[in-house]
Amino acid sequence: MATEMLGIMVTKYENLDHIAGVVKAARAAGKAVTLFMTDEGVRFTRDPKFIELLKVDGVEFSCCDHSCERAGIHDKTTGISYGSQYNNAGMLHDSTRVLVF
Protein backbone atom coordinates (compact mmCIF):
# COMPACT_ATOMS: atom_id res chain seq x y z
CA MET A 1 0.00 0.00 0.00
CA ALA A 2 1.33 3.43 -0.95
CA THR A 3 2.32 5.76 1.86
CA GLU A 4 -0.53 8.01 2.91
CA MET A 5 0.16 11.69 2.44
CA LEU A 6 -0.89 14.61 4.58
CA GLY A 7 -1.20 17.93 2.77
CA ILE A 8 -0.98 21.09 4.86
CA MET A 9 -2.12 24.36 3.35
CA VAL A 10 -0.94 27.41 5.28
CA THR A 11 -2.80 30.63 4.48
CA LYS A 12 -2.15 32.66 7.64
CA TYR A 13 0.92 33.69 9.57
CA GLU A 14 -0.19 32.04 12.79
CA ASN A 15 -0.64 28.64 14.46
CA LEU A 16 3.05 27.73 14.08
CA ASP A 17 3.03 25.52 17.18
CA HIS A 18 0.08 23.56 15.78
CA ILE A 19 1.66 23.29 12.33
CA ALA A 20 4.96 22.05 13.78
CA GLY A 21 3.16 19.63 16.10
CA VAL A 22 1.13 18.15 13.27
CA VAL A 23 4.10 17.89 10.88
CA LYS A 24 6.23 16.04 13.44
CA ALA A 25 3.36 13.77 14.55
CA ALA A 26 2.51 12.88 10.95
CA ARG A 27 6.13 11.98 10.20
CA ALA A 28 6.33 9.94 13.40
CA ALA A 29 3.24 8.07 12.19
CA GLY A 30 4.99 7.29 8.90
CA LYS A 31 2.95 9.66 6.73
CA ALA A 32 4.46 11.63 3.88
CA VAL A 33 3.91 15.36 4.42
CA THR A 34 3.64 18.19 1.91
CA LEU A 35 3.20 21.77 3.06
CA PHE A 36 2.23 24.69 0.84
CA MET A 37 2.26 28.32 1.97
CA THR A 38 0.16 30.99 0.31
CA ASP A 39 -1.29 34.40 1.13
CA GLU A 40 -0.06 35.62 4.57
CA GLY A 41 1.30 32.13 5.19
CA VAL A 42 4.35 32.90 3.05
CA ARG A 43 5.69 35.06 5.89
CA PHE A 44 6.77 31.76 7.48
CA THR A 45 9.39 31.42 4.74
CA ARG A 46 11.51 33.98 6.62
CA ASP A 47 10.61 32.93 10.16
CA PRO A 48 13.57 31.27 11.94
CA LYS A 49 11.28 29.14 14.11
CA PHE A 50 9.45 27.84 11.05
CA ILE A 51 12.71 27.30 9.17
CA GLU A 52 13.68 24.82 11.92
CA LEU A 53 10.89 22.62 10.55
CA LEU A 54 12.77 22.27 7.27
CA LYS A 55 15.09 19.87 9.11
CA VAL A 56 12.30 17.32 9.50
CA ASP A 57 12.87 14.48 7.05
CA GLY A 58 10.19 13.48 4.58
CA VAL A 59 8.47 16.83 4.29
CA GLU A 60 8.19 18.82 1.06
CA PHE A 61 7.84 22.57 1.44
CA SER A 62 6.65 24.93 -1.25
CA CYS A 63 5.05 28.34 -1.44
CA CYS A 64 3.30 30.73 -3.79
CA ASP A 65 5.89 33.06 -5.28
CA HIS A 66 3.16 35.52 -6.25
CA SER A 67 2.11 35.77 -2.58
CA CYS A 68 5.76 36.37 -1.63
CA GLU A 69 5.96 39.25 -4.09
CA ARG A 70 2.75 40.74 -2.72
CA ALA A 71 4.12 40.44 0.82
CA GLY A 72 7.37 42.10 -0.23
CA ILE A 73 9.40 38.95 0.45
CA HIS A 74 12.21 38.77 -2.07
CA ASP A 75 14.77 36.60 -0.27
CA LYS A 76 14.51 32.87 -0.86
CA THR A 77 15.03 30.19 1.77
CA THR A 78 16.89 27.03 0.84
CA GLY A 79 14.68 23.98 1.21
CA ILE A 80 11.50 25.71 0.11
CA SER A 81 10.34 25.41 -3.49
CA TYR A 82 9.01 28.73 -4.81
CA GLY A 83 6.15 27.90 -7.13
CA SER A 84 2.56 28.78 -7.83
CA GLN A 85 -0.98 27.69 -7.10
CA TYR A 86 -0.16 24.70 -9.29
CA ASN A 87 1.82 23.31 -6.33
CA ASN A 88 -1.27 23.70 -4.15
CA ALA A 89 -3.51 22.03 -6.73
CA GLY A 90 -1.10 19.10 -6.99
CA MET A 91 -0.84 18.81 -3.22
CA LEU A 92 -4.60 18.74 -2.68
CA HIS A 93 -4.98 16.26 -5.51
CA ASP A 94 -2.33 13.87 -4.24
CA SER A 95 -2.96 14.08 -0.48
CA THR A 96 -4.91 11.45 1.41
CA ARG A 97 -6.02 14.15 3.83
CA VAL A 98 -5.63 17.95 3.85
CA LEU A 99 -5.40 20.37 6.75
CA VAL A 100 -5.76 24.13 6.35
CA PHE A 101 -3.99 26.49 8.75
Binding site: T11, T38, Q85, Y86, N88, A89, G90
Partner: peptide
Amino acid sequence: TKKIAVIVRDRPGEALRVAGGLTLADD
Protein backbone atom coordinates in the same frame (compact mmCIF):
# COMPACT_ATOMS: atom_id res chain seq x y z
CA THR B 1 -10.58 13.43 -10.09
CA LYS B 2 -11.33 14.84 -6.66
CA LYS B 3 -14.21 17.05 -5.60
CA ILE B 4 -12.97 20.10 -3.73
CA ALA B 5 -15.04 22.84 -2.08
CA VAL B 6 -13.63 26.26 -1.29
CA ILE B 7 -15.57 28.21 1.32
CA VAL B 8 -15.22 31.96 0.88
CA ARG B 9 -15.36 33.75 4.21
CA ASP B 10 -13.20 36.65 5.42
CA ARG B 11 -10.60 36.82 2.61
CA PRO B 12 -12.69 36.59 -0.56
CA GLY B 13 -10.03 37.73 -3.06
CA GLU B 14 -7.49 35.13 -1.99
CA ALA B 15 -10.14 32.43 -1.57
CA LEU B 16 -11.29 32.94 -5.16
CA ARG B 17 -7.71 33.04 -6.47
CA VAL B 18 -6.98 29.75 -4.71
CA ALA B 19 -10.22 28.25 -6.08
CA GLY B 20 -9.17 29.19 -9.61
CA GLY B 21 -5.68 27.79 -9.05
CA LEU B 22 -7.00 24.47 -7.80
CA THR B 23 -8.44 23.75 -11.25
CA LEU B 24 -4.86 23.23 -12.45
CA ALA B 25 -4.91 19.60 -11.24
CA ASP B 26 -8.10 18.89 -13.21
CA ASP B 27 -10.15 18.36 -10.07
